[in-house]
Write a protein that binds this DNA or RNA. Structure first.
Length: 299
DNA sequence: TTCAATGTTTAGAC
DNA sequence: GGTCTAAACATTGA
């Protein structure tokens, strides 16, 4: 769920709500495991340093890079949030109870999917930025000003919606992955960043390309269809406020609506319906991910 | 009740 | 180094 359009929806919401706010405190109950990567707040000593560094800082800006949320602070540091599979950020007023953080007011924040609060930033104005993450896969880390080349960010491929990323670059980067299935290439964040399982299925359905087609066997006209489909599908995802097939919510705790417009993803067994296509949607595991595609028009 | 499946990323095995 | 699998964890639905 949190793929490019969902992360973009969250970032746009944060830009409107937390810029200018000053961090007063940070709380988290994410599991503190010994073997966990030492550069996220799941590492106790790191979390203590993290708190010291961000308390007192003011949010200067919020940006998105691929599926990463970058909260730029007044001191030059950046808080990096990755929502992974089930994470989402919520802005509102919370109260700390014995059982955890609860919304202080009635409303969408009380939606059952928003109840897994595992990190909370308290601002000096009394509002909160809460991180809800049922499966606790999400990560929060601090990037120091000089570490702008953080390794997870550094290796990412181009942004698919950037005007500079033209069809020439699109073809070149995908073609370089000869021998690999196109579905897996689209999911490779080092080729193009921000596309996940849902949107890759939708892109291939729209372009009429079978998910297992080898990268080198795609024709120029198909590349054109895929490039346009990529931009249209991702833009549509943003326009609908993201996809809430599962538990993605925007910063107000409300679901997006893109999942009402899936043509392939999770439509297994349903008729394809593309321009009167008589095919049916099939599901198959490709590279450990579930792929959904039409039995007839994707070849 | 039990088991399979679930958006992402990455560490580890070969 | 590539390439594949499993794991991080919790919930839902068959």
């Amino acid at each position: 769920m949190p793929e490019l359009p969902e992360v973009e929806t969250t970032v746009r919401g944060l830009k409107k709500t937390i810029i200018g706010k000053t961090i007063a405190d940070v709380w988290s109950d994410l599991p503190q495991k010994k073997h966990v990567r030492a550069e996220t707040i799941k590492h106790k000593p790191y979390f203590e340093r993290f708190k010291k560094a961000v308390i007192g800082a003011t949010v200067a800006d919020v940006e998105r890079r691929a599926k990463n949320i970058l909260i730029r602070l007044s001191g030059g540091q950046t808080i990096l949030v990755h929502m992974k599979m089930t994470g989402h950020l919520l802005v509102g007023r919370y109260e700390k109870k014995r059982s955890g953080w609860k919304p202080a007011e009635d409303g969408p924040l009380k939606d059952p999917f928003n109840r897994f609060i595992h990190a909370v930033f308290t601002f000096t104005d009394g509002t909160h930025l809460a991180f809800s993450d049922a499966r606790k896969f999400g990560t929060i880390a601090l990037l120091e000003p000089e570490s702008s080349h953080h390794k997870t960010i550094q290796k990412l491929g181009p942004e698919p919606l950037e005007p500079d990323f033209d069809i020439k670059g699109f073809i070149m980067r995908i073609s370089a992955k000869r021998g690999k299935k196109i579905k897996q290439v689209l999911l490779d964040q080092e080729v193009i960043s921000g596309i996940g399982n849902i949107y890759s299925d939708e892109i291939l359905w729209r372009a009429g390309v079978h998910p297992e087609r080898p990268a080198e066997a795609i024709t120029i006209s198909e590349f054109k269809l895929m490039y346009d489909a990529m931009r249209e599908v991702l833009s549509k995802g943003i326009d609908f406020g993201g996809d809430s097939t599962s538990d993605y919510r925007n910063i107000h705790g409300l679901p997006g609506a893109f999942h009402y417009h899936h043509q392939a993803y999770r439509n297994t067994g349903k008729p394809c319906g593309k321009n009167g296509c008589k095919g049916v949607i099939l599901r198959k595991s490709i590279g450990g991910r579930s792929a959904h595609y039409c039995s007839m028009h994707q070849s």
